[in-house]
Amino acid sequence: MSEYLLCLFLFCIGLYCVLRKRNIIKIIIGLGIIEYAVNLFFVLVGYRIHGRAPILAKEQKILNMVDPLPQALVLTAIVIGLAVTALIVAIAIRIYEKYGTFDITKIRRLRG
């Protein structure tokens, strides 16, 4: 149970960073921390006590495997997270070039 709580705490740190900070790079970092927490949570749900990795060995038959399904889902999510981070960084670089700042409250022309 304490693993779930620590993972939730990590998520809350990311959420705080996204909601509270005004620098765009800090917001990207907060989104990254949230992504880490969600990936970790998926793998934690599939863990089994004294389990083995979901890869078959040559001679012996493995019975106590951990759940391979969340791992397969997270594997695609990690790469998608990288691509999305690159897209946000590109947009942030454009914003810096146009407005000369990373502060989101100074970007007045985005409003309405």
Binding site: V43, Y47, G51, R52, A53, P54, I55, Q71, V74, L75
Partner: peptide, 8 residues
Amino acid sequence: LILKAPDL
């Protein structure tokens, strides 16, 4: 790695 997910 500790959670037995070497691919990840």
